Simulated assay, not measured.
Amino acid sequence: MKETDQYFDGIADKFANNIYGTTKGRLRHILLLEAMSPFLQQRPHQIIELGGGTGVLSKTLLEQGHDVTLTDASEQVLELARELLAPYPAVAIEQKPLQEIESLSRYSLVVCHAVLEWLADPFEALKHISQQMTPGSLLSLSFFNRDAALFGNAVYGNFAYIARGLKVKNQVRLNPGNALRPAAVIDFLNTLGFDIEARAGIRCFHDYMNDKPETDEKFAELLEAERQYGHQEPFCWLGKYFYLMLRKT
């Protein structure tokens, strides 16, 4: 059966709760913003967020004074985004799949977080983004880390799942079907003419913990450890998501 892109129509509320209603979602949001922060402070940006979902990141970027265009393939997800972003009438919201978005040349920063792993051909999507971008502009990219997914399943003894290539017969819609190896993505980005400005592992420890933090104190301790080691080897390579800030050459 031919692989297809995964969208979230019909499960928009469940998607939103799964991403941002958990410690894993809180951590991801905080750590991604902190990884982006040095580049956001340089100047106000013209930003487009590809596959931006319910608009949580876009809201923060708007609050920081950037001009933001939010896109997503799912109209139902964007309905939630319109509610969240109603106080920001200047934001542009467009319902479009990533592959149909053109004219990225007018943006100084393209954001593509946790999108590639839901696409049938993530490398073709990266090629499309690269072809649309202007030299000197930035790409903030994060994706589900296949190496970390394999390691985590080994830790929990899911060897049959590993032997099947991390595939299940009946794919759960909130489980990404196309996790990517960071080394393979970096190699491909080099061929597209990107320079790496920064890299980090996102959630290098959280997803391997038997007991997730249940108190604010424990969450704060975990967050500090994630901040300290997420940019260091070998820990960065074990982040459940891998992050890159890239500059188009």
Results as ranks from 00 to 15, higher is better:
Leu119Cys: 08
Ser137Trp: 00
Ala225Trp: 10
Gln99Lys: 15
Ile202Pro: 00
Leu119Asp: 01
Gly201Trp: 01
Ala184Gly: 03
Ala200Gln: 05
Leu222Trp: 05
Leu150Tyr: 12
Arg146Met: 10
Tyr229Cys: 01
Ala163Ile: 07
Gln95Ser: 11
Phe144Pro: 05
Val172His: 14
Ala125Trp: 00
Leu192Ile: 09
Asp195Ile: 02
Ala179Ile: 06
Leu104Arg: 07
Lys167Gln: 13
Tyr107Thr: 03
Asn175Asp: 11
Pro135Ser: 06
Asp187Arg: 14
Ser105Tyr: 04
Gln131Arg: 15
Ser105Arg: 15
Gln228Ser: 12
Asn158Trp: 03
Pro213Lys: 05
Gly201Ser: 04
Ser137Val: 07
Ala220Gly: 07
Leu98Ile: 07
Val155Arg: 15
Ser142Leu: 05
Tyr107His: 11
Glu226Asn: 01
Leu138Ile: 09
Glu226Lys: 01
Phe219Ser: 11
Ile162Trp: 00
Asn190Leu: 11
Ala225Phe: 04
Leu116Trp: 00
Leu166Lys: 01
Leu138Asp: 01
Asp216Ile: 00
Lys169Gly: 11
Arg106Pro: 04
Tyr156Lys: 15
Ser130Asp: 08
Ala90Gln: 15
Ala200Ile: 01
Phe205Arg: 12
Leu222Ile: 07
Pro87Lys: 05
Glu124Trp: 05
Arg146Ile: 06
Leu98Lys: 04
Gly177Glu: 08
Gln132Met: 06
Pro135Leu: 03
Cys112Leu: 07
His113Asp: 06
Ala163Gln: 14
Ala225Asp: 08
Pro182Ile: 01
Phe123His: 05
Gln171Ile: 09
Gln171Arg: 15
Leu180Gln: 12
Leu166Ser: 02
Ala183Ile: 13
Phe194Glu: 02
Asn190Ala: 14
Phe219Asn: 08
Asn158Tyr: 03
Asp121Arg: 13
Ala163Lys: 15
Gly201Gln: 03
Leu192Tyr: 10
Trp118Phe: 10
Arg164Tyr: 06
Glu217Asp: 09
Gln99His: 14
Val111Trp: 00
Leu189Gly: 02
Ile186Val: 15
Ser142Gly: 06
Gly136Cys: 10
Lys127Pro: 05
Asp216Gly: 10
Cys112Trp: 00
Leu141Thr: 05
Arg227Trp: 04
Thr215Ser: 14
Ala154Gln: 14
Asn175His: 13
Gly157Ala: 08
Leu98Trp: 02
Leu222Pro: 04
Glu197Lys: 15
Gln95Val: 14
Pro213Glu: 03
Gly177Asp: 08
Gln132Trp: 03
Gly177Pro: 05
Ser103Ala: 13
Ala179Gln: 09
Gln95Lys: 15
Ser108Met: 07
Asn170Cys: 07
Pro97Leu: 09
Ala220Ile: 03
Met133Asp: 02
Glu124Thr: 14
Lys167Phe: 08
Asn170Leu: 07
His231Val: 14
Asn210Tyr: 11
Gly136His: 08
Asn153His: 13
Ala92Met: 12
Ser103Pro: 06
